[in-house]
């Protein structure tokens, strides 16, 4: 996270007060409620949170791939390399997608077209963004290169998705995303569908690719271990809000103050070096996104919640790069109210 006053690095991605709703005839689902974060060129940010926190919705919004009829971006802006994604025309969007920004999808079993060969599916984005005027042979050469990169023998490019295992399909999904060497890669739970041994391989591969190509990465996951391995910045998401944002150091340092939800997340991971009888899961469930609580969204589950937590939306308190959205932070030394955040029109 770069603070507003000094910007040492160029920003790849800047999300400002993004608000996304799913609108149906019966109800409005408040999926993402005014989140802001930014990502420097070559940086990595981990978006952490439990299922239904709005992580995937955020990712889809970044590419404007939300379901057309129901998914609505109500507020905010997304700046990619300084230009607004939301204000882009369809044509500009098509140029961005695939080449500047690419996404690794969550479910490799459904994300590939069953009737096209994987070679065709990988070469498609190269073909669509062929500004260098590659010949068909050169495009095939690039496909082979990408396949080698993700560890699939290029000879298999004439095969169809059903001929691959889950782990191999995830590699194909990654190959599709990497084919045009995008500037920004969004990895939406790239390892959730895989078993543990393959998970490590796939993560290592994503890291290697990022390091080699200098790609900026948004890593979406519910697994703090993955974040610790890959990300230099972390954003913790709860009920469509970012409750805590900071560098990996800020977040993983247990000495620091944290949002109660972040503490809860850490409490539910087993540690090898400590003797703990039982893990402490966070009690309760995420609030219904069609009817969010009046005060802090986490207050119904929060062990530290006070009277004001139930009534007023918390402000964001900042110390350096570390931001926490919690009432209890107002009394903690070194953390000051973020002014910019105050202007954000809170929903409700």
């Amino acid at each position: 996270m770069t603070s507003g006053t000094t910007e040492p690095k160029e920003l790849m991605l800047e999300v400002k007060n993004l608000t996304v709703e799913y609108q149906s005839d019966l109800e409005t689902v408040h999926a993402v409620n005014g989140i802001s974060f930014s990502l420097a060129k070559g940086g990595t940010i981990g978006l952490v949170g439990e299922t239904g926190a709005g992580k995937t919705t955020t990712a889809l919004a970044l590419m404007r791939l939300l379901p057309e009829r129901t998914g609505k971006i109500r507020q905010g802006d997304i700046l990619l390399n300084g230009t607004s994604v939301l204000k882009s025309s369809d044509k500009e969007l098509m140029l961005l997608r695939g080449e500047t920004i690419a996404m690794i999808f969550q479910d490799p079993m459904t994300s590939l077209n069953p009737v096209l060969t994987i070679g065709d599916q990988i070469s498609e984005s190269i073909l669509l963004h062929n500004s260098q005027g590659r010949t068909p042979e050169q495009i095939q050469g690039r496909v082979d290169e990408v396949l080698n990169m993700v560890g699939i023998p290029p000879a298999r490019k004439r095969e169809y998705p059903h001929q691959f295992s889950g782990g191999m399909r995830q590699r194909v999904v990654i190959a599709i995303a990497m084919a045009c060497e995008p500037d920004l890669l969004i990895a939406d739970e790239p390892t959730t569908a895989l078993d543990v041994t393959i998970q490590a391989q796939v993560l290592m591969m994503i890291r290697k690719l990022r390091d080699r190509l200098g790609t900026s990465l948004v890593m979406i996951t519910h697994d703090l271990g993955i974040v610790a391995q890959t990300c230099d910045n972390v954003a913790v998401m709860y009920a469509g809000q970012l409750v805590e944002v900071g560098s990996a150091k800020d977040i993983f340092n247990r000495e620091n103050s944290h949002h109660p939800y972040t503490n809860g997340l850490f409490g539910s991971i087993p540690k090898l070096n400590e003797r703990v009888k039982r893990l402490k899961p966070i009690p309760g469930l995420m609030p219904d996104p069609t009817a969010l609580p009046e005060g802090c969204y986490f207050s119904p589950r929060c062990a530290e919640s006070a009277n004001m937590c139930l009534k007023a939306r918390p402000e964001v308190y900042v110390k350096g790069e570390h931001k926490i959205k919690c009432h209890k932070m107002r009394n903690v030394d070194g953390y000051v109210k973020e002014e910019a955040e105050r202007e954000e029109a809170e929903r409700g």
């Binding site: 695939g98 999808f105 994300s111 077209n113 999904v173 599709i176």
Partner: peptide
């Protein structure tokens, strides 16, 4: 389907999404 979203994420124009990715399925 998810794979239609994948096709869009590659920057495929709508016509290509329909004729190449959706129709055959």
């Amino acid at each position: 389907q998810d794979y239609i979203r994948t096709a869009r994420s590659k920057g495929a124009p709508e016509r290509r999404v329909i004729w190449k990715h959706a129709l055959k399925n």
